[in-house]
């Protein structure tokens, strides 16, 4: 590809991005692309940098390769972050057990593929279902009885449930890592960058799930009820909404997405173990906070930022600094805008 062509393409991408930004309000509020806006933006930014590097005559392959890897990692973070943010929206709880639900999903998918001989899509569905049930059970057992207790109490039971799931996992699945069978081999060459099929699948499935979630939350009654509860719980009750059912539904949907993330992570990074949920869980929560906790598109945005930047830090600096990135971002954003990038400023009533 010549530099001139690259320059033209760069301009094109930048123009496209500008267009997207300009109509962001429209895209975000009214169309079905609301939640796909951020993954799409991330892709465009990467493309832009790619063309910029080509135009400058620099080595672009390494960057693009890493950034594309980042997109798939970011997808996983984003899917987990969605559960955190939705649950936080309805009951204002940092559900520490959420990372472990993702682990449960990964194992459910693993056994669906190895023991039940299911193919990818049915296995994904099984994993999502098992995770949803686990999530709802956790809520019923450990959170529902404490709905009127101090929030710190709830936080501790969440930690307790997290440890319980993890240690039960150690007992049931043993601490030996399992390896997902490889389902998607092969890779494609796009503009000289080789992209694994599995990573494309992860990205595409994430986008599809986003669209489904978007539809659910915007156009279905339970979805609207969920938003109502997160915006004003008492008003929602006065509309005739049964809060308990909505909360359970929220846990089910959020956990199903985490379960999907568990399977998706399995097809890219095949090794799974019972403690696999701890760090990704934490970082996904951080992603949700960065984007603005309680705000669904914010979780997407935060997930993408962390996923891509972690890969770039690993590539250009050192993998040992990788874990600091998510938290570094977190601190910077919290200090600059305490409610997260997309968060709204709230004022305490005096």
């Amino acid at each position: 590809m010549s530099r001139v062509v690259a320059l033209v393409l760069l301009c094109l991408v930048v123009a496209l991005f500008a267009l997207l930004r300009k109509y962001r309000a429209v895209v975000v509020s009214n169309t079905a692309f609301k939640y796909s806006y951020y993954p799409a933006s991330a892709l465009l930014v990467i493309l832009a940098v790619n063309f910029l590097l080509v135009a400058l005559g620099a080595d672009r392959l390494f960057f693009v390769q890493q950034a594309v890897y980042g997109l798939s990692l970011g997808s996983v973070y984003a899917l987990i972050a969605l559960g955190y943010t939705m649950v936080y929206g309805v009951i204002k709880l940092i559900n520490f057990a959420h990372g472990d639900i993702y682990m449960v999903g990964a194992y459910a998918g693993y056994y669906a593929v190895t023991a039940l001989n299911l193919s990818f899509v049915p296995a994904l569905v099984v994993a999502m279902a098992v995770s949803a049930v686990t999530g709802v059970l956790v809520e019923r057992i450990a959170y529902k009885p404490l709905r009127d207790s101090p929030r710190i109490t709830l936080l501790i039971t969440a930690i307790g449930m997290s440890l319980l799931l993890e240690n039960l996992g150690q007992k049931v699945f043993t601490s030996t890592p399992r390896t997902y069978p490889s389902m998607f081999t092969g890779s494609y060459n796009v503009f000289g960058v080789s992209v694994d099929l599995s990573r494309i699948i992860v990205f595409v499935v994430t986008i599809l799930l986003m669209l489904a979630l978007q539809y659910f939350v915007t156009y279905t009654k339970p979805g609207r009820a969920m938003r109502a509860v997160s915006q004003d719980r008492d008003a929602a009750r006065l509309m005739g909404i049964d809060i308990d059912r909505v909360i359970a539904a929220t846990f089910a949907v959020g956990s199903a997405l985490a379960g999907a993330a568990g399977v998706l992570v399995g097809i890219v990074f095949p090794q799974i173990r019972p403690t696999m949920g701890v760090m990704p869980g934490l970082k996904a929560f951080v992603a949700a906070v960065i984007g603005g906790i309680g705000i669904i598109p914010g979780a997407m945005l935060g997930g993408m930022i962390i996923g891509v930047s972690e890969n770039l830090v690993t590539a250009y600096i050192s993998s040992s600094w990788r874990d600091a990135i998510a938290f570094g971002f977190l601190i910077l954003i919290l200090l600059a805008k305490p409610t997260g990038i997309l968060g709204k400023h709230t004022r305490e009533k005096v």
């Binding site: 609207r224 938003r227 109502a228 915006q231 004003d232 008003a235 929602a236 006065l238 509309m239 005739g240």
Partner: peptide, 26 residues
């Protein structure tokens, strides 16, 4: 029996139509 609460308590992030739809939730 429906209550219109003090301080309005509309759903701030929803459109006018969506708010009305919430009213017809039952």
């Amino acid at each position: 029996l429906c209550q219109v609460p003090e301080g309005r308590k509309i759903f701030p992030e929803m459109t006018v139509i969506e708010n009305l739809l919430m009213g017809a939730y039952i």
